[in-house]
Amino acid sequence: MVIFELGPTKQLNSVIIDFFRKKRVEDINWKEEVRTLEGQNLLLSYTVASKMITKHRFDFSYQKKFLELLTIHLETVKANRTLIYHALGGLCKREKEPEQYHDVFYPVFEIGNIDILTEVNMIILKESTKLISHGTTGLNTWQASQALADWAIQTTSVKNKTILELGSGVGLTGLVISSSTPCNKYIFTDRNKEVLSLLKYNVKHNCDETLVDENNPEGGVMLFSGLVKRCKVEVRKLDWPRLRQGIFNEIESIDLIFTADVIYDEFINLPFLNAIRMFLDNGTKAAIIAYARRNSETMRALRETLVWMELKYKDLETVQPKYLGWEASPTVDLIQVTK
């Protein structure tokens, strides 16, 4: 996580943040300040020409579209477009062939207060440029991960808690929670080799301090641990469909289980809920499951399996974007599961 300082012209900050979070360019509200050469120069210096962008592999196609639609807007309002044309030409000269991975930025701030902020927390994740890569969808951030993180910031239930996440993917949920809430410890887990490698990379590069960095882990050995602010974080390999009782001798007591967008097929419901039950049987208070409403049959099957396993569940209040700029459609549901 890094602290990203916003520009001195507060009216442009919403445009700057929209750029970093890759808001649909057609929906960006171009401020009057972009009509002046001074405003354009300032906007460029905090977006496509910023050190943050030149240092990382930020989506070239998005940068290009951002500048193209800005020129169209300036033409519409009959403003000078010379600076933007020059920036667009420079961007095209350094455009590269699409890579396997790129860097994705996640500004974390109270969205309604953008006009009074001078800086925001910025989580930067390395993610796949493809939705499916190496036979998995776990190399990208999905909607429910952002919704679960947003919910955790808005609630008080994570204070001083130790949280373990099943299927952490590239790590956004845990990095947001560990950097923006008073949780005590966050344990990232996954079972896919490629996902674990990327997960470790992302957690390590967003940590304030490294405690353990294991290069050749075996079995369930911890891959990494560090500190994000005051929260201790760990990355572990955990194959939850084959969860063994001995794992509870290796990790400390877990207060909460978090999981987001891991339910996509009803055939994994039983092993998934068996893993949750094992944690509940070993002292975990509750599991929070976040999922986007993509397939009603899959969700119906999940609820039926919960009833069949005699696990209690309740629907939590639907969360809306407040600290992360995720799409609110389709709706993301959150279920709390207890014994």
Score class of each variant (00 low, 15 high):
residue 1 M to I: 05
residue 2 V to P: 02
residue 5 E to C: 04
residue 13 N to P: 00
residue 22 K to Q: 15
residue 26 E to L: 07
residue 27 D to C: 02
residue 29 N to E: 02
residue 34 V to F: 13
residue 35 R to A: 01
residue 36 T to Q: 12
residue 46 Y to R: 10
residue 49 A to G: 13
residue 52 M to L: 15
residue 54 T to M: 10
residue 57 R to Y: 09
residue 57 R to P: 03
residue 65 K to T: 10
residue 66 F to G: 05
residue 67 L to N: 12
residue 69 L to N: 15
residue 72 I to D: 15
residue 72 I to H: 15
residue 74 L to Y: 13
residue 79 A to Q: 09
residue 82 T to G: 11
residue 87 A to W: 07
residue 94 R to H: 04
residue 95 E to A: 12
residue 104 V to R: 15
residue 105 F to T: 02
residue 109 F to G: 05
residue 109 F to T: 01
residue 111 I to V: 08
residue 111 I to M: 14
residue 114 I to K: 08
residue 118 T to W: 08
residue 119 E to M: 06
residue 119 E to H: 14
residue 119 E to S: 11
residue 121 N to G: 06
residue 123 I to V: 10
residue 125 L to D: 00
residue 125 L to H: 12
residue 126 K to Q: 00
residue 131 L to N: 14
residue 133 S to E: 03
residue 134 H to V: 04
residue 139 L to Q: 02
residue 143 Q to T: 05
residue 146 Q to V: 02
residue 147 A to M: 07
residue 151 W to V: 00
residue 151 W to T: 00
residue 154 Q to Y: 08
residue 155 T to D: 14
residue 157 S to T: 12
residue 161 K to Y: 09
residue 162 T to R: 14
residue 170 V to S: 07
residue 171 G to N: 09
residue 176 V to P: 08
residue 177 I to G: 09
residue 177 I to T: 11
residue 184 N to E: 13
residue 184 N to R: 09
residue 191 R to N: 09
residue 197 S to C: 06
residue 198 L to K: 11
residue 199 L to G: 05
residue 199 L to I: 00
residue 209 E to H: 13
residue 211 L to D: 13
residue 213 D to C: 06
residue 215 N to S: 09
residue 215 N to L: 11
residue 219 G to D: 03
residue 226 G to C: 04
residue 232 K to E: 15
residue 235 V to P: 01
residue 235 V to D: 08
residue 235 V to F: 11
residue 236 R to T: 01
residue 238 L to S: 04
residue 242 R to T: 07
residue 244 R to Q: 13
residue 244 R to C: 02
residue 245 Q to G: 06
residue 250 E to W: 07
residue 255 D to C: 05
residue 256 L to N: 01
residue 257 I to M: 06
residue 267 F to N: 15
residue 269 N to K: 00
residue 284 T to R: 11
residue 287 A to D: 06
residue 290 A to G: 10
residue 294 R to F: 00
residue 297 E to D: 12
residue 297 E to Y: 10
residue 298 T to I: 06
residue 307 V to N: 13
residue 308 W to E: 14
residue 309 M to P: 07
residue 310 E to H: 14
residue 314 K to P: 04
residue 319 V to E: 14
residue 324 L to Q: 09
residue 326 W to I: 00
residue 329 S to T: 07
residue 330 P to G: 00
residue 331 T to L: 05
residue 332 V to W: 10
residue 334 L to T: 04
